Amino acid sequence: MTASDPLDRYGLAERHLSASALAALAGLRETLDQRIRPLLSDAWERAVMPDAVLDALVPLRLMEPEGVAPDEADSSMFSGFRNFVLARTDASVATLYNAQSGLFRTAVRHGGSVEQAQRWDPLVRSFELRGTFALTEPEHGSDIAGGLATRARRQGDTWTIDGEKRWIGGAAAADVLAVFARDEADGHVKAFLVDRDAPGVEIRPLTGKVSLRPMQNAHIVLDGVRVPEERRLQRVESWRDVAGLLRRMRSDVAWIATGLQAGALDAALAYVRRREQFGRPIGGFQLVQEKLARMLGNVTSCLALVTQLSACQDAGEWSDENSALAKMVTAERARETAALAREVLGGNGILLEHDAARFFADAEAVYSYEGTHEINALIVGRSLSGVSAFT
Rank of each mutant, 00 (worst) to 15 (best):
D355R: 09
Q308W: 08
V329H: 02
A341W: 00
R274S: 11
R273W: 07
F285R: 08
M328Q: 07
T307N: 14
R335I: 11
G316V: 07
G279P: 01
S310C: 09
V329Q: 11
G316M: 08
K291T: 08
S368L: 12
I350L: 10
L292S: 07
D266P: 00
A267S: 14
L325T: 01
A326W: 03
Q277C: 06
Y271P: 02
R275K: 14
Q286N: 10
A304Y: 04
V288N: 08
R358I: 03
E317T: 11
L303E: 03
I282E: 03
I350K: 07
F278A: 13
W318T: 05
E364N: 11
E370W: 02
C312G: 12
G316A: 11
R275D: 09
L345S: 10
E290V: 13
A341G: 13
G371Y: 00
I282R: 08
E317M: 11
N348M: 12
D266N: 13
T307W: 02
A365Y: 01
H354V: 10
D355A: 14
V344M: 11
L287H: 14
T307Y: 01
D266K: 06
V272W: 01
Y367F: 15
A357Y: 00
R294C: 03
R273M: 07
L292H: 13
F360H: 14
E290S: 08
Y367S: 10
A293M: 13
L265K: 15
G371C: 06
L292D: 08
G349R: 02
A341M: 05
G346N: 12
R274K: 09
M295T: 06
S301L: 07
L265E: 07
E364C: 08
V366F: 01
A357V: 03
D362G: 10
A311I: 15
L265T: 11
L287Q: 13
R275H: 15
L325Q: 04
E317K: 10
L309F: 03
E364S: 14
G347I: 08
A357D: 04
C302S: 14
I282M: 08
L345V: 10
R358E: 02
S319K: 05
